[in-house]
């Protein structure tokens, strides 16, 4: 009788435990769908040709966020173009030459910390480094701040991918008398390219929505500007400014921008994952 009681109690405890863990998962999924639903409900009314063709308006008049979309794309592109080679070369050192060296684990450790370091600190750093010296905010400074965020992401994913390349490929190429740099550039990179591309896409998705590092670097610009040496509008900053404002038409534009940016980032993430799955399956 006692054994049966114990058994029943253990089953009850287990049932509660499992129900709670299911509830937690349901909560996580609910948050995701609630956010997406809110974005779509508030963002779709903002859609229209104005959104993509007009620049940010003063309060009370019609306009769009074309200058902010342009700024975000340009700064993200420059940051990715600068950050990716730096990240790939660092990852190459860690994966190919780092074995046995004492500095490689330290670099890996520091890189992992930079990966999670607060992005607003990066903004402060670039402010001190560039904005203060140049005397004004600029899109270059914004791009540099974003590039600093790209590097650790690319280092991490590229190193993992380079390590996945089978040693037999390296050995076969080396046995043919190929110099090491050619082995790496022409054999190893080619074998790992899909995985590395995934990493770059994740990095783009990461910086696409970053706001904090741009606050003190690129700032914002009410007008259409292609001058990299001056302040430039960008989506996150415009969303921040417009959402916090009391003007209804600014808030609508903020929701429109928020929806665009989230859809773009989630699509990039999903594409990156598909690419990763596909490259894992193909060899």
């Amino acid at each position: 009788m006692q054994a049966a009681d114990l058994y029943a109690r253990r089953r009850t405890v287990n049932g509660i435990y499992l129900a709670l863990s299911m509830a937690a998962t349901a909560t996580g999924l609910a948050i995701l769908f609630l956010i997406l639903w809110t974005l779509l409900r508030n963002g779709i009314p903002a859609l229209g040709s104005d959104l993509f063709t007009e620049t940010t308006p003063p309060p009370g008049s019609r306009g769009g966020i074309a200058n902010a979309i342009y700024g975000s794309i340009v700064m993200t592109a420059v940051a990715t173009l600068v950050g990716t080679p730096v990240g790939v070369l660092t990852a190459t050192y860690l994966a190919e030459f780092g074995a046995g060296s004492r500095i490689a684990p330290v670099i890996r450790f520091v890189n992992d910390i930079l990966l999670s370091a607060p992005s607003i600190i990066i903004g402060l750093f670039v402010y001190e480094l560039m904005v203060l010296r140049m005397g004004h905010f600029s899109a270059w400074a914004g791009s540099v701040a974003l590039a600093i965020i790209v590097v650790p992401v690319v280092v991490r994913t590229s190193e993992d991918m380079l390590r996945l390349v089978p040693a037999s490929l390296r050995e076969a190429a080396t046995a043919l008398g190929t110099p090491q740099w050619k082995v790496i550039v022409m054999v190893i990179y080619r074998a790992a390219i899909q995985g590395m591309l995934t990493g770059v896409m994740l990095a783009v998705a990461r910086i696409g929505g970053e706001t904090a590092p741009l606050l003190f670097t690129a700032l914002n610009n009410q007008f259409w500007s292609t001058n990299m040496n001056g302040p430039m509008a960008n989506l996150p900053f415009v969303i921040f400014q417009f959402a916090m404002s009391p003007y209804a038409d600014w808030q609508v534009l903020a929701w429109g921008g928020a929806m665009l940016i989230t859809i773009a980032i989630l699509l990039l993430n999903i594409l990156a994952r598909l690419l990763a799955n596909w490259s894992n399956r193909s060899p």
């Binding site: 990461r206 928020a258 999903i270």
Partner: peptide, 24 residues
């Protein structure tokens, strides 16, 4: 699929959480 959806929560930018937190 469920693991991926949870991971997507991490991909949503901070500012989106902010605007959602403020208005919803």
């Amino acid at each position: 699929p469920i693991g991926t959806l949870i991971e997507l929560l991490a991909a949503i930018p901070s500012i989106i959480y902010g605007i959602w937190g403020l208005f919803v």
